[in-house]
Write a protein that binds this DNA or RNA. Structure first.
Lengths: 145, 145
DNA sequence: TTTCATTTAATAGCTCGCTATGCAATATTA
DNA sequence: TAATATTGCATAGCGAGCTATTAAATGAAA
């Protein structure tokens, strides 16, 4: 059977994602952030006070994964969980001042990592690359729910 | 600052890689395999008896990561570690018959996952996608060692 | 109202990345 | 040859993903 890892989309996707995460980790470590916190922060910088369920829906991550990530973020004083006034099941997630202040440097770090990764592509190729990744994501998501 | 997750290569790469891993995991679970074992198996199906160091060089993962993966594979009776006859530091990695027998169904599972992910692309787009991922990998690797 | 179902979040336990460190075997050098 | 450096691998500990289960609060229904 002919199977070459360098012609396997899945193999390349895994390799690429690991390198992206390492590059980002290096850049945001001085800020006290980790790559897994980034997606949650992006949503919370947009609007905090959301419930865990709200975030889960937007991030396409399992509820348990997010619960653990939020626990680490609370430990690191990036967020506060406060009970929802009208529904005792819900915890609202609020950013700390510390987390708010990290927005600009964190986004800069992410943009630098992206720019480095795409540095060898022209503008058309970059756009095409993003488009094809979105296509693959849609196809893979379709397979599941 | 304008930062949209759906226009961030790193965000998309992470999302895509997670979905690839889930799709593959589902398909190889009946075989008793997990996605992390795949890269090592690919190398060992080519040629076993290699040392851990040999595999590390080919896989671009850290030595400790591979050591743990190999420990799970040994536990699952996929490999045997035998001391190298001429150098007491080295452990040679040998496939079991069980692992050899899994080659064809495992590769089929991987190819199905890839085909599904790329199903909405024509042949030219698929080739371009792989090329652009290899470009990004090269750029991200260049940043490090 | 009491019971049962649903919803929200947390917890347990696994894989598989990473860094940092330790240990034994081998090589090198003073 | 004795001391030191290097090499190959294992282990510890953490982050971040997953599934499965549990607990508590709310809602619905008998």
């Amino acid at each position: 059977m002919d199977f070459c890892k360098d012609s396997s989309a899945g193999y390349l996707a895994n390799h690429m994602a690991r390198l992206f995460a390492l590059g980002l980790a290096e850049r945001i470590r001085p800020l006290g952030l980790t790559p897994g916190q980034f997606p949650a922060l992006l949503e919370l910088w947009e609007k905090d006070g959301q419930s865990q369920k709200d975030l889960v829906a937007k991030l396409d991550v399992e509820q348990a994964t997010l619960a653990n990530t939020l626990a680490r973020m609370e430990r690191d004083a990036l967020i506060l969980r406060r009970p929802h006034p009208g529904d005792g099941r819900v915890q609202q997630i609020w950013l700390t001042e510390k987390a708010r202040a990290l927005r600009t440097p964190a986004l800069e770090a992410a943009m630098k990592t992206n720019a480095n990764a795409l540095g060898a592509m022209n503008a058309g190729e970059q756009a095409e690359f993003l488009r094809l990744m979105r296509l693959a994501i849609a196809a893979l998501r379709g397979e599941r729910g």
